[in-house]
Design a protein around this nucleic acid. Sequence first.
DNA 1: TAAATTAGCAACCATAAAGTTGCGTATTAA
DNA 2: TTAATACGCAACTTTATGGTTGCTAATTTA
Lengths: 109, 109
Amino acid sequence: MQSNINMLFKAIADPTRREIFHALVLTTSALSITQISTQFDMSRQGVTKHIKILNDAGLVKITEDGRNRFCFADPKPLKEVNKWMAFYSQYWDDSLDKLDDYLNTTKKA
Amino acid sequence: MQSNINMLFKAIADPTRREIFHALVLTTSALSITQISTQFDMSRQGVTKHIKILNDAGLVKITEDGRNRFCFADPKPLKEVNKWMAFYSQYWDDSLDKLDDYLNTTKKA
DNA sequence: TAAATTAGCAACCATAAAGTTGCGTATTAA
DNA sequence: TTAATACGCAACTTTATGGTTGCTAATTTA
């Protein structure tokens, strides 16, 4: 198993997975695997795989209920991504100044 | 070419790429491809590929200077990721309540 | 001018990833 | 108790990914 943060980044890297996650966040009720798959024009197994990866990343929780497995979104792990980005946010506003500085100094030289 | 946001998520999904990006953010001077590859115990071509993906995502800018290609980090595109996450941040604090609610109601039923 | 350096391009390899189908099993409904 | 439903597991296919090596071209240094 990979590290948590790696699995998190991997989980949100796939657009289909982001869509599934989004749908789970928006819905008020829990969705079973089959319900998700009808909603996404994808085979049930395809959804199962994505759910597994989302679950590994902690972004989706699953409760078993008879033959059903209901999926819930849990956005909490995204805080980690937020933390990762927080460091770079300080460079957002002056980021290309570095490039400008370089170009200016080399032109002057 | 994929969409911008997809390329962005893809770019930061790989841990090596995040490391390279981080090194470029931290360094005061620009780094050439060769300089990066010596720093990362990876072949020059491996680095070139990563830089290309980072460049596609807008996270790295390149200036050519003779036979050198100097790379600069540009964290600005990460704002998009931040925007994507902003929506989910409203669910961070009460996320698992959804699950709790479900479990409670089903137990009561 | 000859040698060294920086890098792109192409081919290649191994593995992972996204998705499918088929089949068996457990649970629910008729 | 039979039929339908929900699902997991395994196998398979296709394509992407991360990485390598070999070769060539351009630029810089001796």
